[in-house]
Every structure is written in C-alpha cells, then in structure tokens.
Amino acid sequence: MLAGATALSLLVFGLLLLAFLRRGREGRTSPTVWIGGLGVAMPIAVLLALVGYALMLGERIVAPGVSGTVVIDATGRQWSWEFSHRVGDGTPATHNELHLPAGRPVVLRIAAVDVIHSFWVPRLAGKMDAIPGHVNLLRIEAAQPGIYEGQCAEFCGSGHSGHLFRVIAHDEAGWVAFQRGERQ
C-alpha cells in the first residue's frame, strides 16, 4: 500500500514538474485524456483492487465466530480494565492484566461501564471500542507466549494517557496453571 501510494504521488509530482518544463511548447491536450483517463479510469482501477483486498483481509480480522475458542470479558472503566476469564472453575477475574493462551484464537467481549474507551494491543490486533450499553466482539491471537502492552485508544478523560494494561500470553502449561488459579 505504501509503495503504491508513493508511486501515485510521484506520478502526480512528475506530471506537475513536466507541465512547468514544457512551458511554451505548443499543442493542447483534450480534457478526455487528462480527466477521463487519469482522473477517472486510473483511480477506479486502483481503488477496486484496494477495496477488494481490504474486504477480504478485514473479513478475517474483524468477523469472529469460530467455535471452541476462549471467551474473555474485557470491561473498561475510568481508568482501569477488568478481565474476567470464563474458564476453569473459579472464572478468575484480573485487574489490568489479560491472560490468554498463546497460539489459540481468543474472542473478547468488550464493554465499558462509564465512558467510551477503546481496547488496543498494537502487536496483537486492531482496536475495538468499549461503549457503555453495547458489547463488541474482537478476535485476537497471540502467536508467541510473552507480554504484550495494551492501551486505551479512545480519549476518556484526564486519566486517558495512563489508561494502560498488559496482555500475558501463556504457553500450554502456564495456561493450565492459570486456569487452576495458580499465578506465577
């Protein structure tokens, strides 16, 4: 996408430069070439390809709905996050720390209790708003076990800058232990 954007920008800048360099030379070009060709036909081709590609990609990221996945509730408030893991016996709830198994898809049910927040772990997935009165679903998957930083991406008042949390992705053993309520 970046390469395409650069190429198109350079095309425009190049034509501009040429327009100045060819000053004085004769010959009018018709509107059809400029506007019909470059202004209409070219963008249509580019945009069609781009939108099609984005739709396909988006269908995979946004649309959840695979069965057998882990479901976790994430609730934003001023200024912390509650996660309740609907797994194991004790459905352990945690504060500002989201635990999940690495290498498996996880569906988050995202909500808020006061104002709008937005759940965002840049290295795992795009963001999804947490809106009072609504529940939004987001599918994420951590490829590797480890710690991922997360942040609130929607302006939510004076604590917005510090509205942070972290995601802990466990390997199989760690995940089993977590479900039993053993915290490392």
């Binding site: 327009a19 509107p31 400029w34 470059l38 202004g39 209409v40 963008p43 939108v51």
Partner: peptide, 23 residues
C-alpha cells in the same frame, strides 16, 4: 474510497490546465 474519484478529476484537470498553458 470512491470519494477519491471526484478529487482525482479535479487534480488532473488542474495539472492538464498547467500542461496546456504557460505557467
């Protein structure tokens, strides 16, 4: 994405105008 189209029409109309004139 479609809204880029009328904008592209204008941009190329401007460049074409420069092309035809003596800027």
């Amino acid at each position: 994405a479609l809204v880029a189209l009328p904008t592209a029409v204008q941009v190329f109309a401007w460049i074409g105008t420069l092309w035809n004139g003596r800027p």
